[in-house]
Design a protein around this nucleic acid. Structure first.
Lengths: 183, 183
DNA sequence: CAACATATGACGACCGGTCTAGTTATTCCT
DNA sequence: AGGAATAACTAGACCGGTCGTCATATGTTG
Protein backbone atom coordinates (compact mmCIF):
# COMPACT_ATOMS: atom_id res chain seq x y z
CA UNK A 1 0.00 0.00 0.00
CA UNK A 2 2.67 2.46 1.07
CA UNK A 3 4.79 1.22 -1.78
CA UNK A 4 2.03 1.90 -4.27
CA UNK A 5 1.44 5.33 -2.77
CA UNK A 6 5.12 6.13 -3.02
CA UNK A 7 5.25 5.26 -6.67
CA UNK A 8 2.18 7.31 -7.48
CA UNK A 9 3.33 10.33 -5.49
CA UNK A 10 6.62 10.38 -7.35
CA UNK A 11 4.75 10.48 -10.61
CA UNK A 12 2.03 12.96 -9.91
CA UNK A 13 2.71 14.56 -6.55
CA UNK A 14 0.76 14.29 -3.36
CA UNK A 15 -2.33 16.18 -4.45
CA UNK A 16 -2.23 14.67 -7.88
CA UNK A 17 -3.26 11.23 -6.75
CA UNK A 18 -6.56 10.48 -5.08
CA UNK A 19 -7.24 7.85 -2.50
CA UNK A 20 -9.41 6.07 -5.04
CA UNK A 21 -6.37 5.29 -7.14
CA UNK A 22 -4.40 4.18 -4.14
CA UNK A 23 -7.19 1.76 -3.36
CA UNK A 24 -7.59 0.47 -6.90
CA UNK A 25 -3.93 -0.23 -7.37
CA UNK A 26 -3.37 -1.77 -4.00
CA UNK A 27 -6.61 -3.72 -4.17
CA UNK A 28 -7.59 -2.67 -0.67
CA UNK A 29 -11.16 -1.63 0.02
CA UNK A 30 -11.96 1.93 0.95
CA UNK A 31 -12.82 1.45 4.58
CA UNK A 32 -9.69 -0.46 5.42
CA UNK A 33 -7.61 2.56 4.60
CA UNK A 34 -9.10 4.63 7.38
CA UNK A 35 -8.78 1.77 9.80
CA UNK A 36 -5.07 1.40 9.21
CA UNK A 37 -4.43 5.08 8.58
CA UNK A 38 -6.82 7.06 10.77
CA UNK A 39 -4.95 10.17 9.74
CA UNK A 40 -6.14 9.68 6.18
CA UNK A 41 -4.19 10.64 3.13
CA UNK A 42 -1.83 12.95 4.97
CA UNK A 43 -0.74 10.14 7.25
CA UNK A 44 -0.08 7.97 4.25
CA UNK A 45 2.05 10.70 2.76
CA UNK A 46 3.97 11.10 5.98
CA UNK A 47 4.60 7.38 6.27
CA UNK A 48 5.68 7.13 2.67
CA UNK A 49 8.18 9.89 3.32
CA UNK A 50 9.36 8.31 6.53
CA UNK A 51 9.83 4.93 4.90
CA UNK A 52 11.59 6.25 1.88
CA UNK A 53 13.67 8.49 4.09
CA UNK A 54 14.79 5.65 6.30
CA UNK A 55 15.40 3.33 3.43
CA UNK A 56 17.63 5.82 1.66
CA UNK A 57 19.42 6.77 4.84
CA UNK A 58 20.19 3.12 5.36
CA UNK A 59 21.58 2.85 1.88
CA UNK A 60 23.82 5.82 2.53
CA UNK A 61 25.01 4.19 5.70
CA UNK A 62 25.65 0.85 4.04
CA UNK A 63 27.56 2.50 1.28
CA UNK A 64 29.59 4.45 3.80
CA UNK A 65 30.36 1.32 5.79
CA UNK A 66 31.43 -0.50 2.67
CA UNK A 67 34.49 1.71 2.82
CA UNK A 68 34.43 3.13 -0.70
CA UNK A 69 36.21 6.43 -1.19
CA UNK A 70 34.23 9.63 -1.43
CA UNK A 71 34.28 9.94 -5.19
CA UNK A 72 33.02 6.44 -5.56
CA UNK A 73 30.39 7.10 -2.89
CA UNK A 74 29.09 10.02 -4.92
CA UNK A 75 29.24 8.08 -8.13
CA UNK A 76 27.29 5.16 -6.84
CA UNK A 77 24.57 7.30 -5.30
CA UNK A 78 23.96 9.32 -8.44
CA UNK A 79 24.20 6.29 -10.67
CA UNK A 80 21.53 4.72 -8.54
CA UNK A 81 19.24 7.73 -8.72
CA UNK A 82 19.81 7.88 -12.45
CA UNK A 83 18.80 4.27 -12.73
CA UNK A 84 15.69 4.91 -10.69
CA UNK A 85 14.65 7.72 -12.99
CA UNK A 86 15.32 5.68 -16.08
CA UNK A 87 13.55 2.56 -14.87
CA UNK A 88 10.44 4.61 -14.37
CA UNK A 89 10.76 6.01 -17.87
CA UNK A 90 11.47 9.46 -16.46
CA UNK A 91 7.91 9.69 -15.27
CA UNK A 92 8.84 9.90 -11.62
CA UNK A 93 11.05 12.05 -9.47
CA UNK A 94 11.83 11.56 -5.79
CA UNK A 95 8.79 11.13 -3.53
CA UNK A 96 10.41 13.56 -1.16
CA UNK A 97 10.70 16.27 -3.76
CA UNK A 98 7.19 15.60 -4.94
CA UNK A 99 5.80 16.01 -1.47
CA UNK A 100 8.09 18.78 -0.29
CA UNK A 101 7.23 20.85 -3.34
CA UNK A 102 3.49 20.42 -2.92
CA UNK A 103 2.97 20.93 0.77
CA UNK A 104 1.82 24.23 2.10
CA UNK A 105 2.11 25.65 5.57
CA UNK A 106 -0.99 23.88 6.83
CA UNK A 107 0.40 20.42 6.08
CA UNK A 108 2.44 20.36 9.25
CA UNK A 109 2.85 16.61 9.40
CA UNK A 110 4.12 16.28 5.86
CA UNK A 111 6.51 19.17 6.29
CA UNK A 112 7.92 17.68 9.46
CA UNK A 113 8.32 14.29 7.82
CA UNK A 114 10.25 15.64 4.86
CA UNK A 115 12.41 17.83 7.07
CA UNK A 116 13.38 14.90 9.26
CA UNK A 117 14.04 12.64 6.29
CA UNK A 118 16.32 15.14 4.61
CA UNK A 119 18.09 15.74 7.91
CA UNK A 120 18.74 12.04 8.35
CA UNK A 121 20.24 11.84 4.88
CA UNK A 122 22.50 14.73 5.62
CA UNK A 123 23.64 13.12 8.84
CA UNK A 124 24.67 9.96 7.02
CA UNK A 125 26.37 11.79 4.19
CA UNK A 126 28.20 14.14 6.53
CA UNK A 127 29.43 11.20 8.56
CA UNK A 128 30.70 9.54 5.41
CA UNK A 129 32.54 12.70 4.43
CA UNK A 130 34.04 13.25 7.88
CA UNK A 131 35.23 9.69 8.08
CA UNK A 132 37.05 10.27 4.82
CA UNK A 133 38.93 13.25 6.14
CA UNK A 134 36.66 16.21 5.62
CA UNK A 135 36.35 18.59 8.55
CA UNK A 136 33.03 18.76 10.33
CA UNK A 137 31.95 22.15 9.06
CA UNK A 138 32.72 21.33 5.47
CA UNK A 139 31.05 17.96 5.81
CA UNK A 140 27.80 19.68 6.69
CA UNK A 141 28.08 21.98 3.73
CA UNK A 142 28.87 19.00 1.53
CA UNK A 143 25.94 16.95 2.78
CA UNK A 144 23.50 19.78 2.32
CA UNK A 145 24.65 20.52 -1.21
CA UNK A 146 24.62 16.80 -1.93
CA UNK A 147 20.94 16.31 -1.18
CA UNK A 148 20.03 19.55 -2.94
CA UNK A 149 21.83 18.43 -6.08
CA UNK A 150 20.27 15.01 -5.81
CA UNK A 151 16.73 16.28 -5.51
CA UNK A 152 17.28 18.83 -8.22
CA UNK A 153 18.62 16.14 -10.49
CA UNK A 154 15.51 14.06 -9.93
CA UNK A 155 13.29 16.95 -10.91
CA UNK A 156 15.29 17.96 -13.97
CA UNK A 157 15.70 14.37 -15.09
CA UNK A 158 11.96 13.95 -15.05
CA UNK A 159 11.37 17.17 -16.94
CA UNK A 160 13.99 16.38 -19.56
CA UNK A 161 13.47 12.63 -19.71
CA UNK A 162 17.20 12.10 -19.42
CA UNK A 163 19.76 10.92 -16.92
CA UNK A 164 22.04 13.81 -17.83
CA UNK A 165 21.06 15.83 -14.78
CA UNK A 166 22.06 13.00 -12.47
CA UNK A 167 25.49 12.59 -14.01
CA UNK A 168 26.13 16.30 -14.20
CA UNK A 169 24.97 16.93 -10.66
CA UNK A 170 27.29 14.14 -9.60
CA UNK A 171 30.20 15.96 -11.24
CA UNK A 172 29.33 19.11 -9.36
CA UNK A 173 29.26 17.29 -6.06
CA UNK A 174 32.54 15.59 -6.80
CA UNK A 175 34.10 18.95 -7.57
CA UNK A 176 32.72 20.30 -4.32
CA UNK A 177 34.09 17.33 -2.43
CA UNK A 178 37.60 17.82 -3.65
CA UNK A 179 37.42 21.55 -3.03
CA UNK A 180 36.21 21.04 0.52
CA UNK A 181 38.65 18.24 1.16
CA UNK A 182 41.59 20.40 0.22
CA UNK A 183 40.62 23.08 2.72
CA UNK B 1 -3.88 36.57 -12.42
CA UNK B 2 -0.88 34.68 -13.73
CA UNK B 3 1.18 36.30 -11.02
CA UNK B 4 -1.19 35.10 -8.35
CA UNK B 5 -1.25 31.64 -9.86
CA UNK B 6 2.53 31.54 -9.89
CA UNK B 7 2.76 32.41 -6.24
CA UNK B 8 0.19 29.84 -5.25
CA UNK B 9 1.72 27.09 -7.36
CA UNK B 10 5.09 27.65 -5.74
CA UNK B 11 3.52 27.21 -2.36
CA UNK B 12 1.25 24.28 -2.88
CA UNK B 13 1.97 22.81 -6.28
CA UNK B 14 -0.22 22.72 -9.33
CA UNK B 15 -2.83 20.32 -8.02
CA UNK B 16 -2.74 21.82 -4.58
CA UNK B 17 -4.50 25.00 -5.60
CA UNK B 18 -8.00 25.12 -7.00
CA UNK B 19 -9.37 27.58 -9.46
CA UNK B 20 -11.58 28.94 -6.70
CA UNK B 21 -8.56 30.25 -4.86
CA UNK B 22 -7.05 31.66 -8.02
CA UNK B 23 -10.25 33.60 -8.54
CA UNK B 24 -10.59 34.78 -4.95
CA UNK B 25 -7.07 36.07 -4.71
CA UNK B 26 -7.00 37.68 -8.10
CA UNK B 27 -10.46 39.15 -7.63
CA UNK B 28 -11.51 37.92 -11.04
CA UNK B 29 -14.99 36.53 -11.43
CA UNK B 30 -15.45 32.86 -12.06
CA UNK B 31 -16.66 33.01 -15.62
CA UNK B 32 -13.85 35.18 -16.88
CA UNK B 33 -11.32 32.45 -16.46
CA UNK B 34 -12.48 30.39 -19.40
CA UNK B 35 -12.77 33.41 -21.58
CA UNK B 36 -9.16 34.38 -21.06
CA UNK B 37 -7.85 30.84 -20.72
CA UNK B 38 -9.91 28.51 -22.88
CA UNK B 39 -7.45 25.77 -22.05
CA UNK B 40 -8.51 25.94 -18.41
CA UNK B 41 -6.24 25.40 -15.50
CA UNK B 42 -3.63 23.57 -17.48
CA UNK B 43 -3.21 26.54 -19.77
CA UNK B 44 -2.76 28.77 -16.77
CA UNK B 45 -0.06 26.48 -15.49
CA UNK B 46 1.67 26.43 -18.84
CA UNK B 47 1.60 30.21 -19.11
CA UNK B 48 2.88 30.63 -15.60
CA UNK B 49 5.78 28.37 -16.46
CA UNK B 50 6.42 30.13 -19.74
CA UNK B 51 6.37 33.56 -18.10
CA UNK B 52 8.60 32.58 -15.24
CA UNK B 53 10.87 30.74 -17.62
CA UNK B 54 11.29 33.73 -19.90
CA UNK B 55 11.68 36.14 -17.05
CA UNK B 56 14.45 34.10 -15.48
CA UNK B 57 16.14 33.46 -18.80
CA UNK B 58 16.19 37.20 -19.36
CA UNK B 59 17.76 37.73 -15.98
CA UNK B 60 20.47 35.20 -16.82
CA UNK B 61 21.10 37.00 -20.06
CA UNK B 62 21.24 40.41 -18.41
CA UNK B 63 23.63 39.15 -15.82
CA UNK B 64 25.77 37.57 -18.50
CA UNK B 65 25.82 40.77 -20.52
CA UNK B 66 26.77 42.79 -17.48
CA UNK B 67 30.16 41.14 -17.85
CA UNK B 68 30.63 39.77 -14.35
CA UNK B 69 32.99 36.82 -14.02
CA UNK B 70 31.62 33.32 -13.66
CA UNK B 71 32.02 33.06 -9.91
CA UNK B 72 30.17 36.28 -9.42
CA UNK B 73 27.51 35.15 -11.89
CA UNK B 74 26.90 32.05 -9.80
CA UNK B 75 26.95 34.01 -6.60
CA UNK B 76 24.40 36.52 -7.73
CA UNK B 77 22.01 33.92 -9.07
CA UNK B 78 22.02 31.84 -5.91
CA UNK B 79 21.85 34.89 -3.68
CA UNK B 80 18.78 35.93 -5.60
CA UNK B 81 17.10 32.56 -5.27
CA UNK B 82 17.95 32.53 -1.58
CA UNK B 83 16.35 35.91 -1.20
CA UNK B 84 13.25 34.70 -3.04
CA UNK B 85 12.89 31.77 -0.68
CA UNK B 86 13.42 33.91 2.37
CA UNK B 87 11.05 36.65 1.30
CA UNK B 88 8.30 34.07 1.04
CA UNK B 89 9.13 32.76 4.49
CA UNK B 90 10.35 29.51 3.00
CA UNK B 91 6.81 28.61 2.07
CA UNK B 92 7.51 28.56 -1.63
CA UNK B 93 9.91 26.83 -3.95
CA UNK B 94 10.31 27.43 -7.66
CA UNK B 95 7.10 27.30 -9.70
CA UNK B 96 8.95 25.19 -12.22
CA UNK B 97 9.92 22.58 -9.66
CA UNK B 98 6.43 22.63 -8.21
CA UNK B 99 4.89 21.94 -11.58
CA UNK B 100 7.55 19.62 -12.95
CA UNK B 101 7.30 17.45 -9.85
CA UNK B 102 3.52 17.22 -9.99
CA UNK B 103 2.83 16.61 -13.65
CA UNK B 104 2.21 13.11 -14.90
CA UNK B 105 2.53 11.77 -18.40
CA UNK B 106 -0.91 12.96 -19.44
CA UNK B 107 -0.15 16.60 -18.78
CA UNK B 108 1.63 17.00 -22.06
CA UNK B 109 1.33 20.76 -22.22
CA UNK B 110 2.76 21.34 -18.78
CA UNK B 111 5.60 18.93 -19.40
CA UNK B 112 6.48 20.65 -22.65
CA UNK B 113 6.39 24.05 -21.01
CA UNK B 114 8.75 23.08 -18.22
CA UNK B 115 11.09 21.30 -20.59
CA UNK B 116 11.35 24.34 -22.82
CA UNK B 117 11.82 26.70 -19.89
CA UNK B 118 14.63 24.66 -18.39
CA UNK B 119 16.22 24.37 -21.82
CA UNK B 120 16.16 28.13 -22.28
CA UNK B 121 17.86 28.62 -18.93
CA UNK B 122 20.53 26.16 -19.87
CA UNK B 123 21.14 27.94 -23.15
CA UNK B 124 21.70 31.24 -21.39
CA UNK B 125 23.90 29.77 -18.71
CA UNK B 126 25.96 27.76 -21.18
CA UNK B 127 26.48 30.88 -23.27
CA UNK B 128 27.65 32.76 -20.23
CA UNK B 129 30.10 29.98 -19.40
CA UNK B 130 31.42 29.68 -22.94
CA UNK B 131 31.93 33.39 -23.22
CA UNK B 132 34.06 33.16 -20.10
CA UNK B 133 36.34 30.57 -21.57
CA UNK B 134 34.70 27.23 -20.92
CA UNK B 135 34.60 24.82 -23.83
CA UNK B 136 31.24 24.05 -25.36
CA UNK B 137 30.86 20.54 -24.03
CA UNK B 138 31.75 21.51 -20.51
CA UNK B 139 29.48 24.52 -20.71
CA UNK B 140 26.53 22.25 -21.37
CA UNK B 141 27.45 20.07 -18.43
CA UNK B 142 27.85 23.14 -16.29
CA UNK B 143 24.51 24.62 -17.29
CA UNK B 144 22.66 21.40 -16.68
CA UNK B 145 24.18 20.92 -13.25
CA UNK B 146 23.52 24.57 -12.50
CA UNK B 147 19.78 24.37 -12.97
CA UNK B 148 19.59 21.04 -11.18
CA UNK B 149 21.38 22.48 -8.17
CA UNK B 150 19.22 25.56 -8.29
CA UNK B 151 15.95 23.65 -8.37
CA UNK B 152 17.14 21.28 -5.70
CA UNK B 153 18.14 24.18 -3.52
CA UNK B 154 14.67 25.66 -3.84
CA UNK B 155 13.09 22.42 -2.72
CA UNK B 156 15.46 21.81 0.18
CA UNK B 157 15.29 25.43 1.30
CA UNK B 158 11.54 25.16 1.53
CA UNK B 159 11.67 21.90 3.45
CA UNK B 160 14.30 23.18 5.86
CA UNK B 161 13.13 26.76 6.07
CA UNK B 162 16.67 27.96 5.52
CA UNK B 163 18.79 29.56 2.83
CA UNK B 164 21.61 27.13 3.56
CA UNK B 165 20.79 24.95 0.57
CA UNK B 166 21.10 27.91 -1.78
CA UNK B 167 24.50 28.94 -0.48
CA UNK B 168 25.82 25.40 -0.36
CA UNK B 169 24.53 24.56 -3.81
CA UNK B 170 26.23 27.69 -5.02
CA UNK B 171 29.53 26.45 -3.63
CA UNK B 172 29.10 23.18 -5.45
CA UNK B 173 28.48 24.93 -8.72
CA UNK B 174 31.45 27.21 -8.23
CA UNK B 175 33.63 24.18 -7.58
CA UNK B 176 32.29 22.58 -10.74
CA UNK B 177 32.93 25.74 -12.70
CA UNK B 178 36.56 25.89 -11.75
CA UNK B 179 37.02 22.19 -12.38
CA UNK B 180 35.49 22.46 -15.83
CA UNK B 181 37.34 25.65 -16.63
CA UNK B 182 40.69 24.05 -15.90
CA UNK B 183 40.04 21.23 -18.34
C1' DC C 1 -20.38 -18.27 22.88
C1' DA C 2 -18.83 -13.61 23.84
C1' DA C 3 -15.76 -9.97 23.02
C1' DC C 4 -12.80 -8.06 20.18
C1' DA C 5 -10.25 -6.87 16.05
C1' DT C 6 -10.41 -6.17 11.38
C1' DA C 7 -12.67 -5.72 6.82
C1' DT C 8 -16.10 -3.78 3.73
C1' DG C 9 -18.52 -0.89 0.42
C1' DA C 10 -22.42 2.29 0.39
C1' DC C 11 -23.22 7.03 1.66
C1' DG C 12 -22.96 12.08 1.94
C1' DA C 13 -21.20 16.52 2.17
C1' DC C 14 -18.34 19.02 -0.46
C1' DC C 15 -15.30 20.93 -3.82
C1' DG C 16 -13.13 20.31 -8.43
C1' DG C 17 -13.02 22.28 -13.13
C1' DT C 18 -16.08 23.29 -16.96
C1' DC C 19 -19.69 25.20 -19.66
C1' DT C 20 -23.82 27.59 -21.32
C1' DA C 21 -26.67 31.46 -21.26
C1' DG C 22 -26.89 36.07 -20.39
C1' DT C 23 -25.06 41.05 -19.81
C1' DT C 24 -22.26 44.92 -20.76
C1' DA C 25 -18.89 47.39 -23.62
C1' DT C 26 -16.95 48.53 -28.11
C1' DT C 27 -16.67 48.88 -32.91
C1' DC C 28 -18.38 50.15 -37.30
C1' DC C 29 -21.37 51.44 -41.00
C1' DT C 30 -24.90 54.24 -42.82
C1' DA D 1 -25.48 60.38 -34.42
C1' DG D 2 -28.26 56.01 -34.36
C1' DG D 3 -28.29 51.46 -34.20
C1' DA D 4 -26.83 46.93 -35.45
C1' DA D 5 -23.15 43.58 -34.97
C1' DT D 6 -19.49 41.92 -32.68
C1' DA D 7 -16.32 41.58 -29.00
C1' DA D 8 -15.44 41.42 -24.04
C1' DC D 9 -16.86 39.88 -20.02
C1' DT D 10 -19.79 37.78 -16.07
C1' DA D 11 -22.92 34.88 -13.29
C1' DG D 12 -24.45 30.90 -11.86
C1' DA D 13 -25.57 26.10 -12.48
C1' DC D 14 -23.66 21.62 -13.59
C1' DC D 15 -21.73 17.05 -13.24
C1' DG D 16 -18.24 14.33 -11.77
C1' DG D 17 -15.20 13.05 -8.55
C1' DT D 18 -13.04 14.00 -3.76
C1' DC D 19 -12.23 12.53 0.92
C1' DG D 20 -13.76 10.84 5.06
C1' DT D 21 -17.54 8.30 7.90
C1' DC D 22 -20.42 4.77 9.36
C1' DA D 23 -23.25 0.75 10.01
C1' DT D 24 -22.71 -3.74 9.09
C1' DA D 25 -20.23 -8.12 8.04
C1' DT D 26 -16.61 -11.29 8.80
C1' DG D 27 -13.05 -13.50 11.12
C1' DT D 28 -10.39 -14.57 15.52
C1' DT D 29 -9.22 -15.30 20.18
C1' DG D 30 -10.08 -16.51 25.03
Amino acid sequence: MLAVAGELFRERGFDGVGVAELLNRSGAPRGSLYFHFPGGKEQIGAEVVARFGQHSAQRFRDLHESGVDLDRFIDIVFKTTAKESKERDYLASCPMAAIAACCGKEDVILAAATREAFASWEREIATAARTRGMNAKNADIFANAFVAAMEGAYVIAKAQASTAAHVNASRAIKALASALMAA
